[in-house]
Design a binder for these strands. Structure first.
Ligand code: FES
Ligand code: FES
Lengths: 151, 151
DNA sequence: TTATACAGTACCAATTTAGTCCTATATTGA
DNA sequence: TCAATATAGGACTAAATTGGTACTGTATAA
């Protein structure tokens, strides 16, 4: 149902924690303890974020991770892009797809428009936005979770 | 990568075809031939759309399917909803989720905001919008597909 | 040289999705 | 009433994806 992967969710939680205190380096172990995400999973996610250039990684003892940009410059779209690749809600919304018989299709090109609209939303939301405290809703409303992630 | 299921894509193609000539009933066989989606798959999708109330279904000989509303009233969000349930980009953006330790999370509630923004986009786009002819892009741009669906 | 911490990759289990098929039910018309 | 037509509702399997873990390699500091 138009779901992001759990790894993307983990990544956002980890980056948000790092953003809070970005003065020092964060080891994978520290991140794991602070977020209650299992260490192997933290490692996996951080490696991907490092490769994508969203965080700096320093090896060796006294090493760790640090945000590569300020939270205001890290968009949700870039986090998703790092973990899952470019957003493409359907095969037809992707740029690289090849199709000979598209002439017969009634909705040709329109998924691309929808996709663009969603990407615009995701590019407009930054890590800093994600750290704003949201009001708590009653149980009938949005029930947020954190434990749910590490299930 | 924030992907809709293929069935949702099929459903949109089928509904768009039906919208073109909604004066008569469309049998699953006719829809299959017009869209080149295999008949069993067409049946599966139409059953779901019927159950969701997006199309009327009439059984027996001379039976078939017909849109339950005009294309301007059928939103992309409702099509997704019929096939995949409500849009929930993460577990934390769902309404029904239960979490005891959310107090520790840095991004608590924010996925719900992002989710809402995406739902707003999807609710603003109708089947009629999806039928607007889009300009053809060069191969470097969006490459639309129709055959890709039935792969 | 040793301990620490990230990098890269391979791997498996669990889940989800796509696709097909079978039986039941409703409708029409001969 | 019977036969033909079409949808309804499940059940089922194969394929693909995802989530999670483990192992080996490399860089750094003391
Ligand atoms: S991700 Fe933090 S409350 Fe769900
Ligand atoms: S769905 Fe891809 S061109 Fe129609």
């Amino acid at each position: 149902m138009l779901r992001l992967s759990k790894l993307t969710d983990y990544a956002t939680v980890l980056l948000a924690y790092m953003a809070k205190t970005n003065s020092h380096l964060h080891t994978a172990l520290e991140l794991s303890e602070a977020t209650a995400i299992h260490l192997p999973t933290v490692s996996k996610v951080m490696k991907v974020l490092s490769k994508a250039g969203l965080v700096y990684a320093i090896r060796g003892s006294k090493g760790g991770y640090q945000l590569a940009q300020v939270p205001e410059q890290i968009t949700v779209a870039s986090i998703i892009g790092a973990l899952e690749g470019p957003v493409a809600i359907t095969e037809c919304s992707a740029q690289t797809h090849d199709c000979e018989q598209a002439s017969a299709c009634e909705i040709k090109g329109n998924w691309g428009v929808v996709n663009r609209a969603i990407v615009n939303v995701l590019e407009s939301i930054t890590l800093a936005d994600m750290m704003v405290t949201q009001q708590q809703y009653s149980s009938a409303e949005i029930q947020v979770s954190w434990q749910g992630l590490s299930r």
